Simulated assay, not measured.
Amino acid sequence: MALDLGNLAAFMAVAQSRGFREAARTSGYSASALSAAVRRLEAQAGVRLFQRTTRSVTLTEAGTQLLERLVPALGEVEAALDVVNGFRESPRGTLRLNVPAVAARLFLSPIVEAFLRAHPDIRLELTVDDTFVDVLAAGCDAGVRYEERLEQDMIAVPIGPRRQRFATAASPAYLAGRARLRHPRDLLGHACIRQRFASGAMPPWEYERKGKTVRVDPSGPLVVTTIAADMAVSAAVAGLGVIFLFEEWLAPAFESGALEPLLEDWWCSFSGPFLYYPSRRYMPAPLRAFVDFLRQFR
């Protein structure tokens, strides 16, 4: 069977974007061109790869299995062709990163700005996503996540702060007339502003002191997804309740006095984030340049 990489690339773009219109927006090809390429591939393969309705486009079982094999295979083809990039004085191409909201909010900006100044021929595409994704299946070269969420077969390079803490805080207005918190379990009697991951998980608040770990699962008037943490901060400043978030995120509110630290001697310290990417023989030149840059940036 003769292969047409263009048809395969069109199939992968539609599958990853979950639709022809979104694939057209991100790939630069028209929806009709992508549709024609997918039809040619289906005719060649002799099976339907997508179930199409007026409202949605979903993979068939055959399409799902093809995508699972195709993503790493085309990634290797792209990386192999990218080898010639290493012979340029300055690498060029597109680097696609999948990062959590906390990375985009707290520490990526100066790294990205310095990297793009050093490599003007590289285009960087950032996707902010708090779920743990297969970076290749998501069409990305690498991702940023914390150590407990890294898969063992990934290469991990430190990025950003090496130690961080979760802080607990509330506004002076909320604390007025209320007893001061002395133990994490006291939070069960307070209104607390919670955050939920896109997966639906809402982890408990964790504290540690003198080797003792305490986890509490408080309730309150507001729950937001982690990507909307700024709304949680605004709610805490407005006096709606107690917040539990990265210390760096709350630092401006601490400095202005809009929020007061609570239970500070119980705050947990944990390892900072990592850039992670799959181990493979050929690394795309833009990613290789970024990894080398991180080693010099620290």
Score class of each variant (00 low, 15 high):
A10F: 03
G200E: 13
A253T: 01
K212H: 10
S32W: 03
A238H: 11
P261L: 13
R295K: 14
L188E: 06
I227M: 04
P120A: 07
D217Y: 15
R92K: 10
D230W: 00
T94Q: 08
P221D: 01
T94I: 12
G63Q: 03
F11H: 02
R178K: 12
L70E: 05
A36E: 07
F87M: 15
Q65A: 11
R281V: 11
Y174I: 09
V84M: 13
F87A: 14
W266M: 06
R117G: 10
H119A: 02
A9R: 14
G272W: 04
R55W: 08
Y277V: 02
S271P: 08
L34V: 08
V237R: 07
A23K: 04
P286E: 02
R178V: 00
V237Q: 09
A229D: 11
V102S: 15
R295M: 14
V84K: 13
W266K: 00
A73G: 05
F115H: 04
D265Y: 00
Q51K: 12
R209H: 11
Q44W: 06
A103Q: 12
W249S: 11
P273F: 06
D153Q: 11
A201W: 12
R288E: 06
E208P: 03
M283E: 13
L262F: 03
E206K: 14
S279D: 11
L8A: 10
A118N: 01
L74Q: 12
A229L: 10
T58G: 00
L181P: 01
A169F: 01
A36N: 10
V291C: 04
A253F: 05
A170K: 01
Y207R: 08
S234G: 13
R69N: 07
G220D: 10
A228R: 03
Y282L: 11
E247Y: 04
D4E: 13
P184S: 04
G6T: 11
F87S: 13
L188T: 01
D4N: 15
L97F: 10
R105A: 15
E247H: 09
A43K: 14
L181Y: 08
M202T: 15
A170C: 08
P158N: 12
S256P: 03
R295V: 15
G257K: 04
D265P: 00
A232P: 06
L187Q: 09
R281E: 12
K210C: 06
G239I: 08
L70H: 07
S271W: 06
R21M: 08
R55I: 00
R163H: 11
T131V: 12
E125T: 07
E42T: 10
V224L: 03
S27F: 07
V242W: 05
V242D: 02
R52S: 05
R180T: 12
N85Y: 01
D134R: 05
V77R: 05
A73K: 04
A142I: 13
R298G: 15
G143M: 10
P284R: 06
S30F: 02
R182L: 13
P261N: 11
R165M: 10
L74P: 02
